[in-house]
Simulated assay, not measured.
Amino acid sequence: MKPKLSAYVSDSVAQRLELAARRPGTNKSAIVDAALDRFLNPERDTAGDAALVRRLDRISRQLERTERDLSVMAETIALFVRYYLTITPPLPSGDQDAARALGRERFDMFVAQVGKRVASGGRLVADVMDRITTSKPDLFMRNIEEGAPLGAAEGGMTEFHSQHAAGEQPGLSPAGREEVGDV
């Protein structure tokens, strides 16, 4: 025989206890007994605590990876902007209106392509990194000067720079300078 216990609880606790006791296979006495046992003897449910600690550790690792990824993206964007602003000459004032219109059109296409990739679950950076590590596994092992394009350290001119110096738009075919491929 178990000892009988009378206790006063707040209205909100009484309501929650009433709802919990309506579940099949349980009653108020069993719920109160389990709650008091856990409160008075926390070592008894170490499995639940261990599961919680494992989950918190996993969440912590995910947050660390996300923080690292955001840091890499921010640095990448900053380096790209610095490079772009360094190599892009100012436009004559007569060409600025046409350049703005073309820029708006290209930006709209860029936004559409980003939306398409996000909707499809595609990750361009991961895809590119996979391709690079497969085709050129030693690429990231080279000693490259900060901001220097690949090939520039050896004294050679890269395809990008030779096209840029010739006034061409790198990466686009001569016939389709206005076309932007699927990203």
Rank of each mutant, 00 (worst) to 15 (best):
L139F: 13
Y8G: 11
E159G: 06
S6W: 05
V183E: 02
P42D: 05
V9Y: 03
S6Q: 13
A7R: 02
R123E: 14
G151T: 00
L139I: 04
D130I: 01
H161F: 07
R106Y: 13
T88V: 05
A99Q: 01
S10M: 05
E43T: 06
P90D: 02
V81K: 06
D182P: 00
D127Y: 00
A112M: 11
L17P: 02
L102G: 12
G176R: 14
V180R: 00
Y83S: 13
H161E: 15
D57H: 03
A119Y: 07
A78S: 14
P89F: 04
P137Y: 00
R142G: 01
M73P: 01
M1D: 06
D37M: 11
L19P: 02
E75C: 09
P170M: 02
T88Q: 09
V128Y: 00
Q169V: 13
S60M: 04
A50W: 05
N41P: 03
S29E: 04
A34S: 11
A21S: 11
P3I: 11
R177V: 07
D33R: 10
V9H: 00
G147M: 06
P3H: 04
A78K: 06
D45K: 04
T46N: 11
A20L: 06
Q15S: 14
L17Q: 00
P90W: 01
A153K: 10
N27W: 03
R100E: 15
I87R: 09
